[in-house]
Lab assay of single mutants.
Amino acid sequence: MSIQHFRVALIPFFAAFCLPVFAHPETLVKVKDAEDQLGARVGYIELDLNSGKILESFRPEERFPMMSTFKVLLCGAVLSRVDAGQEQLGRRIHYSQNDLVEYSPVTEKHLTDGMTVRELCSAAITMSDNTAANLLLTTIGGPKELTAFLHNMGDHVTRLDRWEPELNEAIPNDERDTTMPAAMATTLRKLLTGELLTLASRQQLIDWMEADKVAGPLLRSALPAGWFIADKSGAGERGSRGIIAALGPDGKPSRIVVIYTTGSQATMDERNRQIAEIGASLIKHW
């Protein structure tokens, strides 16, 4: 067993022997301040990774656009098919120029040779490549099948209805392509620590998230040296922004954090800054 596999296998073990965790309302004060600064709703939840206990939450059962955070769930569904012998990570998928959609920095470079399922998941999570996500959605049967996968996990809230990039439209009061912070946090925890996926697939999923290259201005910008984070960000229309993450000190994750916002007129930089400040408060009061 590799060191990384050992780390993920012992996530519940280490967490069980940690000192009790206590909620700190100071972080919620910052979440509410972010709402004021952005002029928009902000949803927040913080779960203990081992027990699933909610440590703090704000608007945990209000719907927010998922945006690209759905790509972690998508690759979880792909990995479940791999575990069941219905898919192979090494299978190569070929596609054409007509398949390319807006923001496809990886797939646009491989029109000639195609990409493997493993490479597509890596591109979808680490670079948020939209064509990679659409190609992977095709392998599982489309958005409705991802929703069905989530329902089978016990998540009857999260739903995907459309493809990239239309799913980022974020129309107010439109339930399409949305989740709730509580539902997303619980589902992410199941994917990373539950028995739904094999140990190898859980490790692969967290490795992809740990290698995320496009979430630097968010929670990662607030992390002290030595902290662990595996995350996936999302951005959408109407001032929408979000991030889902597993993080913790001492090089291992111990909490799940989900943050979503929508309806702001603020710039992307300002949305990023507010999420980073929430992260800084979380870490300060850990």
Rank of each mutant, 00 (worst) to 15 (best):
L191D: 03
A84E: 10
G226R: 08
L218M: 15
A200P: 11
I256D: 01
F149A: 12
F58C: 15
L146I: 06
T69A: 03
G142A: 05
E119R: 05
S128L: 02
R162A: 10
W227I: 00
E145M: 12
A246Q: 07
A185M: 01
V257L: 09
K190P: 03
E169R: 09
E210F: 12
H285T: 08
F64S: 00
K32L: 09
G216M: 15
I140L: 11
G248P: 01
L136H: 00
L74G: 03
D48G: 06
L150N: 15
T112N: 14
I171Q: 15
F64K: 00
L219G: 03
A182L: 13
I259A: 05
A183E: 08
R41P: 13
E164C: 01
T193F: 10
G263M: 10
Q97Y: 11
T187H: 08
W208L: 14
V257T: 12
L219K: 03
D174Q: 11
D36T: 14
A215R: 05
M209F: 03
Y103T: 07
L55V: 12
S51L: 08
T131I: 02
A34F: 11
G236T: 11
P172Q: 06
L188W: 04
M66E: 02
V31G: 01
N130C: 11
R63L: 11
G239D: 03
L47D: 00
K213C: 05
T198P: 08
Q37Y: 06
V117N: 04
R63D: 03
R220T: 03
K30I: 10
T187Y: 04
L205V: 10
E270Y: 14
A235G: 08
T186P: 12
A225E: 15
L218Y: 02
T178I: 04
I229P: 02
G242N: 04
R81T: 11
S80K: 06
E210T: 10
R41N: 10
A235S: 07
Y260F: 13
I283Q: 12
L100C: 06
A225G: 09
R202N: 06
D207P: 02
S104D: 03
P253N: 12
A235D: 03
P60L: 14
L197I: 07
L137E: 05
S240Y: 03
S128H: 03
V106D: 15
D231G: 04
I45N: 03
A235K: 03
E166V: 11
K284N: 06
L150P: 02
P105M: 07
R176Q: 10
E35H: 03
T179I: 01
I283E: 05
C121E: 01
V29H: 10
E56S: 10
H24A: 09
I45T: 15
L73D: 04
P217K: 15
M209Q: 01
E195A: 14
R273Q: 14
G194M: 07
K71Y: 00
Q37E: 08
H110Q: 13
L79S: 04
I278A: 02
K53L: 13
C75R: 02
